[in-house]
Design a protein around this nucleic acid. Sequence first.
DNA 1: TTGTAAGCGTTATCAG
DNA 2: CTGATAACGCTTACAA
Lengths: 363, 363
Amino acid sequence: MDKKPVIAPKGRQQPRVKIEDVARKANVSPATVSRVLNHPDIVRPELRDRVMRHINDLAYTRDSAARALKSGRMRTVGVIVPTLALGIFAEGVEALQNRLSESGYTLFIANSQYDQRREFQELQSLIERGIDGIVLVGASHGRELRSLIEQAGVPVITTYVAKAGGGIPAIGIDNESATREMTEYLLRLGHVRFGAIANVVAASNDRSRARLEGIQRALSDAGLPLKPTQIVKADYSLAQGRSALRQLLTDHPDTTAVICTTDTLAIGAMAEARKMGLAVPATLSITGFDDVELAAQMDPPLTTVSVPAAEIGRGAADYLINAIAGSPVPRSVVLPYRLVMRSSSAPPRPSVRPARRGRSRDH
Amino acid sequence: MDKKPVIAPKGRQQPRVKIEDVARKANVSPATVSRVLNHPDIVRPELRDRVMRHINDLAYTRDSAARALKSGRMRTVGVIVPTLALGIFAEGVEALQNRLSESGYTLFIANSQYDQRREFQELQSLIERGIDGIVLVGASHGRELRSLIEQAGVPVITTYVAKAGGGIPAIGIDNESATREMTEYLLRLGHVRFGAIANVVAASNDRSRARLEGIQRALSDAGLPLKPTQIVKADYSLAQGRSALRQLLTDHPDTTAVICTTDTLAIGAMAEARKMGLAVPATLSITGFDDVELAAQMDPPLTTVSVPAAEIGRGAADYLINAIAGSPVPRSVVLPYRLVMRSSSAPPRPSVRPARRGRSRDH
DNA sequence: TTGTAAGCGTTATCAG
DNA sequence: CTGATAACGCTTACAA
């Protein structure tokens, strides 16, 4: 009896079963075995069954490297997300993988940490791997990357945005329009002193940039353009949501509505508001973006924009599967977002103004 | 002279640059080009540089299928997680991918939705893809799956647990010991009426099962064994944390400490406690597990167990890289967890009991 | 140090 | 309907 050493044995295990082994056992040629697997309908049923039995007996599976070499197709798709730490991307990737898996594709994953150089490198590595399709996130991609894609001649789709430059097809939502609507909703409630917290620190985060533009545009159109100090830039952490709110209220203590470009920031802002003793929404309305699971469970529940991440993932999978097969595909797919009005937003308190203020009358 | 057949490989655009093209341009043999790429040190520098120039000129990259076929190595690793929706897994996958990428490996990802059958199928598909290593999650894997792994002869490691059955190496924490410590801490604070909320609904969630056992064992050892109604089973959603707390307090209104097997459940429980008007921690102590980003930002901040997810991901990558290379590898790696005492836990209020009691003297 | 040539396992073509 | 055979693009003995 051999005692298991702490050290893994270096030796290669028993050689893989190959098509020839099956052929020999079944007394047919390798070609026939191949046909049984790839075109069962052109093999005499009786023979087909016999071969199949041997295939199962030997637990034979085709070598994917050899298949890929022969056919030029890997049946593999790659995705590069900025990070998996954001639930919204994780959800999209999960849906993408599930749909691809149903169609016999396998998914390579990589992350760029919001760094365009890293994105390029990871993509290069994936292309060298011979992937048949590429899923990216966002609209901002260097022209270097676009020419890499072009040269590789691999179908690509970018996600979470409604359109992208360089002729790259996209599937996602119109981020700018979503925040514009959200802002208009707050305007209708009667707000006039706004603040925005936007995670536009990462150069490549065009989603948040578009969202910020939506806010700015709506407010400009309403004759209430945001001053630079009314916009606090942050990364995507909860803690930055807190400090951003604090800074915003230091500069503009009379703000009544804060629009955040992600739920994470909004949740941080709500936490800070609570700590500062500000009632949400009585004193301050706060809104987010993404509709993460927690949003609905906050106290008060967070008003936000729901992003159909799973649908984006599935749509990207379908797009690529069709494109790879040479089937016709749409140029772009704009998915609907959904404004979810919850209790973190309300009309501003009428009595907020400077001077001494009497007791609030509304409750 | 064999001209290229009229029927080009379906769908391929301009034929790929191959090693022979580079060789011709550089006036060397294909073997030399190959050596420049794979063993640069054994090629005369001058020649090497010339070849390199042509490689760059033509933007040549090796066909990975052909390489894999020849070498029997795909330089590819696969991971199967229950879901990416849990930040803890997303974080681990991200770290895993980053480390693998540094070593020239690419990561296939799949998810099982906590379903052992799906896990088996996904693994089968990955193995057919010729992956060189496998990362799994948790200790519970059917013997069918284990024999599949054995037969494939591919290195494997399972994560987030300290040990697994079937001789599978593991990297992770001792979940049972962690909750035992947490429970003992609450006992030391003076709690005697406990409740547990555990996401043990998914049959394959052995992490939470182990955590629950840790709680039970500590309480049994303290002579305070949990009754079945003191244990509420849930899935891993925030909403279930809410309803679980409500149910627990319906059955045992005098509970002073609730131990949850995940932060998500704990956060749900805290939300519900607030809604019910129960002060945390004054009336009720609540603890979680995972130390997600939000835990520290809660009000009050959540006492929890910090799980080194990134370290687990990196460790799994290193393990596989070594195992694939035939280097010695440890049988298992137990990583330290960290109890993070925050303000959601405190001694029970002395005045909860029936009969009158003197004022507490300790403060 | 560089070139030649033999496969790696599969599948498509063509002949039987 | 089935069998022999020639690639697919690359790496690595082995030869020069």
